[in-house]
């Protein structure tokens, strides 16, 4: 399967990336019930993410987190007129198609759910629906865009109410873009090779123990029948596009730890195109007021007087110190 830049610019991409563009400047809220979806819509959310539990509760519950109950998703779709998104486990091809069949508007291949595939993320170009994917840095973002993501969001650290990881990831992304802009073509080629290397993981593990170390590796059909050469070419063309335009070729949102209107404003200030709020709304004491204040803060992220007014008397969710989360409990470590 060729993976050329022309492929990435197909008619499907126009429609899929176009959908993501319509959410710019907006807030997308996690909701678990019809009532919450209505609160989000009334507050001016541009879309809702239909879930069974918000990330803070997923974190507290432990165990395996899967896609939401289709009936729950359908009820939410029927209750509101704004777009409805749903989360699919990383690499879970069948959950992806199942959610697409339900008719949601966008899929989030999300680290908040327990990953299904230890080797690969979904080949999102195979789907007619657009995907949003989490990323901690430019390399992850470029891999997801290569696979067909129409929107990127920072991973942050979901369910913590702690903004530091979202800020870390947005800064990493911005710094990565700046670095690409300063790089010459040969450096971009080196980057493309480096960014492509995780696609080799399965092949490397397969060689181990059945062929002597140092055996030259076959690099055909690595990922959905795409060879390493074609992966590198595809990634290089995305890097070249980033160098030319100084931005990701898809919409870039912030997510993972937004708990207050000022958090949302901070992410906009750092260059986010919009904000996902997971637990921050419905784990706060007054979701109706919090949701409105966050929407207003994103809209007026440099109007500090207004942010102050909107935040007055609002009790945010309790926060978690990232340092107290064991590494294997960090959701951002899921995926690559």
């Amino acid at each position: 399967m060729p993976a050329s830049a022309a492929d990435l610019q197909s008619g499907d991409d126009l429609i899929k990336r176009g959908f993501a563009k319509m959410t710019k400047g907006g807030v997308i809220m996690d909701v678990t019930t019809v009532e919450q979806a209505r609160v989000a819509e009334n507050a001016g959310a541009v879309a809702v993410m239909a879930l069974e539990k918000v990330p803070a509760d997923i974190r507290a519950a432990g165990g395996v987190a899967r896609m939401a109950d289709p009936q729950r998703i359908r009820e939410i779709m029927d209750a509101v007129t704004i777009p409805v998104m749903a989360k699919v486990r990383i690499g879970h091809i069948s959950e992806g198609y199942t959610l697409a069949a339900i008719g949601v508007d966008m899929l989030d291949e999300s680290e908040v759910l327990t990953p299904a595939d230890p080797f690969f993320h979904l080949f999102k170009r195979d789907y007619k629906l657009p995907f949003v994917c989490g990323a901690r840095n430019i390399g992850e973002a470029v891999r997801r865009i290569f696979e067909g993501a129409s929107m990127i969001r920072t991973k942050g650290e979901a369910g913590t109410g702690n903004i530091i990881e979202a800020v870390r990831h947005m800064r990493m992304m911005n710094e990565g873009i700046a670095l690409i802009q300063r790089s010459d073509d040969s450096t971009l080629q080196i980057m493309a090779r480096e960014i492509s290397s995780p696609y080799l993981t399965l092949r490397k593990e397969t060689y181990k123990g059945i062929l002597p170390e140092g055996t030259p590796m076959d690099t055909q059909a690595l990922f959905y029948n795409i060879s390493l050469d074609d992966i590198q070419d595809g990634i290089l063309s995305i890097l070249t596009e980033i160098k030319q335009n100084g931005v990701l070729p898809v919409v870039n949102f912030a997510a993972g730890g937004v708990a207050t209107p000022a958090d949302a404003a901070l992410m906009m200030k750092l260059g986010a195109d919009g904000v996902f709020v997971g637990s921050g709304i419905f784990k706060s004491q007054d979701p109706t007021e919090m949701s409105k204040a966050v929407v207003d803060a994103v809209q007026n992220y440099e109007n500090y007087e207004l942010i102050g007014q909107g935040s007055s008397g609002l009790l945010s969710m309790e926060g978690l110190d990232i340092g107290q989360i064991p590494k294997d409990m960090k959701l951002q470590e899921r995926g690559w």
Partner: peptide, 11 residues
């Protein structure tokens, strides 16, 4: 422009 009409209307 295009976007979410409920959101643009609200503003």
């Amino acid at each position: 422009p295009g976007g979410e009409s409920t959101t643009i209307y609200k503003f």
